[in-house]
Amino acid sequence: MWAFIHKLGSPKWFYALSARLQPWFWALAAVLIVIGTLWGLAFAPADYQQGNSFRIIYIHVPAAFLAQSVFVSMAVAGLVFMVWKIKVADMAAAVMAPFGAAMTFVALFSGAVWGVPTWGTWWMWDARLTSMLILLFLYLGVIALRGSFASRHSGARAASVLAMVGVINIPVIKYSVDWWYTLHQPATFSVTSSPAMPVSMWLPLLVMVVGFYSFFIALTLMRTRNEILRRESNKRWVKELFQEAQ
């Protein structure tokens, strides 16, 4: 077990392993997202209350799931980096942050667009949208903090600490915002908590969620490989990698 973790921590080994894993995740992501898109847009039945605007759920929910999971994985990677000093973990954390912020933005945007036919307004201080907005600020904070240190190592450690502080706070923020929302907006119609969604509706949703997750894994692998090339460009094995290629 420990040997495996330390092996995984070596950039060279990770570079080789991710090269083998990456195509599978890309293929899985592409197939599932295409199937989920066609299924969700064209074949799933329309909602009896919201009509076809309900189809936004097939991107809003996967993006919102990812927005939260990416932050958690970033904090876990930060913890691994701080405790075991595994550099690959920090490279992964560094490339996850912008993607997480993008997914948070997508969740916010699709939620706002969904609000127009549902609530009649672009923005509502709905509990879910509000916590998504706060999450976006947390992402921006982590990205900004990493970028503002002159030394990459300090920036990496600072961003790891902030990600861990953030991940402890996310549930607290989420519950307090939920509580605040029920206090101020009693019994409004919530978009995504429709009771007992039929199988024909949630099955495409499941396909999309799995597709988005494999997209996240594939992208993280690919960009971590880029980050390895960038940071290890002086290492002999990286140089040898492109020796015969010329």
């Binding site: 706060i134 600020f137 947390l138 921006l140 904070g141 900004a144 903090l145 503002s148 902030l162 502080v165 953030g166 706070n169 607290v172 923020i173 307090s176 915002v177 509580w179 605040w180």
Partner: peptide, 18 residues
């Protein structure tokens, strides 16, 4: 660090504010 500090800290203040 001044402006960055508020960007980092304000989101974490929200539960206390609520």
């Amino acid at each position: 660090g001044g402006v960055l500090l508020s960007l980092l800290v304000l989101p974490l203040y929200i539960p206390v504010l609520i």
